[in-house]
Design a protein around this nucleic acid. Structure first.
Lengths: 192, 192
DNA sequence: TTGACAGGTGAACGATCGTTCACTATACTA
DNA sequence: TAGTATAGTGAACGATCGTTCACCTGTCAA
């Protein structure tokens, strides 16, 4: 009979998280109490079939989609299913999903309520991508006076306006040049 | 003179992203056109000092904080600094920041505007943790009738109410038992 | 002109890598 | 009761690992 692969998954994930690399076959044997690397090899063969692990061209272990990502269940309010078949579940890594150009992406913490109507609350983390050309409707980080603000970017012809995401605040029409630090590509909020 | 480590960082990050593991010394030499593994060894020695790389107890490469994470710049609206010293920058990995129990965390897409006052818009992704005990003020995914909804959880004594994050919707007082699928631990929104 | 030094070559080292083979023990099926 | 598949042991294999040594080649300051 097949043993439950969830237990193996958990231990391997824990190893991967702690040492930031996949275990070798010897380390796998150590993890599960095997005396022989061959026991690891047979286990790996199964886990590869269940998409938990992968192996590269030299046999080294690579985390599979089910090990790296989170399970995407469905849609709330439409009623979401809980697929019994683990293989049918779509998986997603937040880093892969949100970050396309890691070298020019930066994190900024939000304070103030100037974008609260856009669903960006104080305390949120914002991912800003530097070097991207802002388009109308984008949320940008721009230099105004001494500090930096986050506003909607709007361009009509040559006229550029910065519009707040809070009805209480008036739009800003920059007098001379406008320094845009970057475009907001995503927002992240952590409860608890 | 020291060469710019940013170029090395970029290539190594690209390798790490593609093959989901750190390169060996031979692969490093291949990446940069070295003929000798020793050239890699000397390069690694420097990159370890700049916190881009790490090495474990057997010399294998491990991604350092500057390779894995995004740079946390500061706070918008308070004016954020751009530290010249790369070593002073705090770095953060989204996966590490948002996910504490990967085995019981799931992703759900939001449709509808029932939590729009809480800054959760349609199209957002929500991270739900299963098995966590909900507390008053938490946002939960709960089973109501046939489908699932996302509401604020409120408990006063034995009375449990589910409150919508949209003033238009009335609170729900569950008649019998309440099936809570999980507690929302974070929200993620992707523009572009 | 000399010396120091950073950057790279090339070869050798013991250790560990994943793989493979033959073999044993257990559990379940026919 | 015999047969078969599952799970693990233990040893050997060539290949690759990171490390180390001596050596070469420029560049730059003294």
């Amino acid at each position: 009979m097949q043993k439950d692969p969830a237990l193996y998954t958990k231990k391997i994930r824990s190893f991967y998280h702690k040492s930031r690399r996949m275990p070798s076959f010897a380390e796998l044997a150590d993890l599960f109490g095997f005396q022989s690397k061959n026991a690891s090899a047979k286990l790996v063969k199964k886990l590869v079939e269940t998409r938990i692990l992968k192996q590269n061209n030299r046999g080294f272990l690579i985390p599979g989609p089910l090990l790296r990502g989170l399970k995407l269940l469905g849609t709330v309010e439409a009623g979401f299913p809980t697929p019994a078949e683990e293989e049918l579940v779509d998986t997603l890594t937040l880093d892969d999903y949100l970050i396309s150009r890691p070298d020019s992406t930066f994190l900024i913490k939000v304070s103030g309520e100037s974008m609260i109507d856009a669903g960006i609350m104080p305390g949120d983390l914002v991912l800003m991508e530097r070097g991207r050309e802002p388009r109308t409707g984008d949320i940008v980080i721009a230099q105004v006076d001494q500090g930096w603000t986050m506003k909607y970017y709007e361009k009509q012809g040559c006229a550029i306006r910065l519009i707040s995401g809070n009805k209480k605040y008036p739009p800003i029409i920059p007098k001379e040049e406008l320094r845009v630090a970057g475009v907001v590509v995503s927002v992240v909020r952590k409860y608890v």
